[in-house]
């Protein structure tokens, strides 16, 4: 029967798809584990650095260092968007892109010029398709981002801020709350807003001097903010992919069940019909 063969082929297709999504789910799970470890390993450095910068920062320093400058008004802002290089991870990339689009609209509505710096193939592809100008694009940051990757991504943006070409830098990435929850998040990367913490300058022996230390570690501080975001983003991507692939696998299972049922029903109907024909035939002979 023609319908039979059709259903049989569809069952095979769905089985193949399920096989693939299940494998992707498993791969994402194991990558997620390693990515989460990296997120946790990156925290002590970020916390210690934050503490030191917070302790040394004082508003008077703003005039001395371009990286600390605080523009009175924002004329032009840079948006640093981090997305994944690959898809098949649910709404992960589109959430980030949407966040960026909304921010661009909001800034433009306020009369602020914007420029886009993107790391991740998906973000680059989207904005290129839309015909937006992309200031810098990085598509070579892998599953295990390094501090050097962060430096490459952030260096042009930092430079433009220091030169006064842009007055604010926003960083858009996914927060890694848990594997299930990875909301997109915008944070103000520059200008640096100092913490209210008391200045550490008078209790510590500073060698060579507070200014010098700050000048050295501020670039590291900015880079670390981006590094942390990259690492969290990588973990969030795997988390999102795992959820998406789990949903796909489950769904394939449902579809399979449905198809198998209609296949069996059709087969049963055919057998019943054949029996009826045989019985009918023999009855006619009597």
């Amino acid at each position: 029967m023609a319908g039979d063969a059709d259903v049989k082929r569809r069952i095979k297709t769905v089985e193949n798809t399920r096989q693939i999504t299940r494998t992707m789910e498993l791969v994402a799970t194991s990558k997620l584990k390693r990515a989460t470890d990296r997120v946790h390993a990156a925290r002590p450095y970020a916390e210690a650095l934050h503490e030191i910068v917070g302790g040394l920062y004082s508003p008077e320093l703003s005039e001395q260092y371009p990286i600390l400058r605080r523009p009175e008004e924002t004329k032009r802002a840079a948006i640093l968007l981090l997305t994944a290089n690959r898809g098949l991870c649910g709404g992960f990339n589109s959430n980030l892109i949407k966040q960026a689009r909304l921010l661009i609209e909001k800034l433009r509505g306020e009369g602020i010029e914007t420029e886009l710096h993107i790391a991740g193939k998906k973000g680059v592809a989207y904005f290129r398709f839309r015909g937006e100008e992309i200031a810098t694009a990085h598509t070579d940051v892998g599953d295990a981002p390094t501090s050097d990757d962060a430096e490459r991504v952030v260096a042009p943006v930092r430079e433009r801020f220091e030169n006064g070409d842009v007055d604010a830098v926003y960083l858009i990435s996914s927060k890694f709350v848990s594997a299930m929850s990875t909301p997109p998040h915008t944070r103000d990367l520059l200008p640096i807003t100092g913490d209210a913490e008391a200045s550490a300058a008078d209790v510590y022996i500073l060698s060579p001097s507070g200014d010098m230390i700050l000048e050295r570690i501020l670039p590291a501080y900015i880079r670390n903010a981006v590094y942390t975001a990259l690492v969290e983003n990588a973990a969030a991507e795997q988390g999102a992919r795992r959820s998406a692939m789990k949903a796909a696998t489950d769904n394939a299972g449902d579809v399979l069940e449905h198809l198998t049922r209609s296949y069996n029903r059709a087969r049963q109907a055919q057998i019943t019909q054949e029996i009826a024909e045989i019985v009918g035939g023999s009855a006619a002979l009597e």
């Binding site: 990296r38 990156a42 450095y45 962060a150 060698s207 060579p208 880079r223």
Partner: peptide, 26 residues
């Protein structure tokens, strides 16, 4: 604690340390 951006390299008790400061060993 010796911490790099990627990981904690060393964590533990010590009786003394010598580190290379910007202007010489400390």
């Amino acid at each position: 604690r010796v911490v790099s951006a990627e990981q904690v390299v060393f964590e533990g008790e010590a009786s003394a340390i010598v580190a290379p400061a910007w202007d010489g060993q400390v």
